[in-house]
């Protein structure tokens, strides 16, 4: 907006304001009614939905679902959609930071005098696209599989080694299922493909020692499983080492 447009806006606004109503009581009445609606919604939600409390946080058992509050789902989903590890920082930090900076600076790059939505096609299309993308990612994030079960055929190489090996394999399978790895990893038909790599054939890529190192000292966003009881950790490593 140049100086002339600014002054014209201020003139126009002064007239509209002079033709308006006093804030008290007119706007205050509407605001108060809205406040009552907000209060009623909060109270109803509290009564109907309650406040559940899961089991106590336990860094060692990890039957966990790393799920954020629903309005962060879109971020989490972004993390799953963008897979190559080199791009993960871009997804996690880059996109939100960029979005925030663009939002911050909006009044400084959108300086046109036009305020009517139908006369601001670029702004409107961008806004609708962003809202749509966020809604879609939130929806996808909400429907992402919950990591609890792990169905995978016992490999022939394990069956051949006898029943102790099979038992050991099954124990590892249980621990992996309980440890929430599938929130970020796909194993066979189970779990989510991303943000972590697919683990279906992890053993052909990474020896047991490497798997153990990853679990104890992973790259973010994967949490560290160092505090798992040694037996469970060993079970996970054994299990993954069989997935050739």
């Amino acid at each position: 907006m140049n100086q002339r447009e600014k002054e014209q806006y201020l003139r126009e606004y002064a007239i509209l304001k002079a033709q308006g109503k006093p804030f008290f009581p007119y706007a205050v009445a509407k605001d108060s009614l809205m406040a009552c609606v907000v209060m009623a919604v909060i109270i109803t939600m509290s009564l109907v939905l309650g406040a559940e409390l899961g089991s106590k946080a336990n860094p060692t058992t990890t039957t966990y679902v790393p799920r954020p509050e629903w309005y962060f789902f879109f971020l989490f989903e972004l993390l799953r959609v963008i897979k190559p590890p080199s791009l993960v920082p871009l997804a996690t930090i880059g996109v939100p930071t960029l979005g925030m900076i663009l939002l911050f600076l909006l009044p400084f790059y959108d300086r046109g005098p036009e305020r009517r939505p139908e006369k601001r096609p670029i702004a409107m299309f961008t806004a609708i696209f962003v809202i749509g993308a966020m809604a879609f990612l939130t929806y996808e994030g909400a429907n992402a599989g919950t990591p609890t079960a792990l169905d995978i055929a016992t490999p022939a190489s394990v069956t051949q080694q006898g029943s102790t090996a099979v038992a050991q394999f099954n124990e590892g399978r249980l621990v992996v299922a309980q440890s929430g790895c599938e929130a970020c990893h796909q194993i066979g038909e189970n779990g989510n493909n991303g943000p972590g790599p697919v683990l279906t054939h992890i053993a052909s890529r990474l020896p047991g020692e490497g798997i153990r190192r990853t679990l104890e000292n992973p790259t973010a966003p994967m949490p560290s499983f160092k505090n798992l009881p040694p037996k469970k950790l060993a079970a996970i490593v054994d299990f993954l080492s069989q997935l050739k």
């Binding site: 409390l53 790393p66 966003p221 994967m222 949490p223």
Partner: peptide
Amino acid sequence: YLLPFDQRAYWATIVGVNINGTG
């Protein structure tokens, strides 16, 4: 989200803080 300190809170926050660390 972390304050109730149940499983959900704990693990979601760990992942959140780790994500933050990739910045």
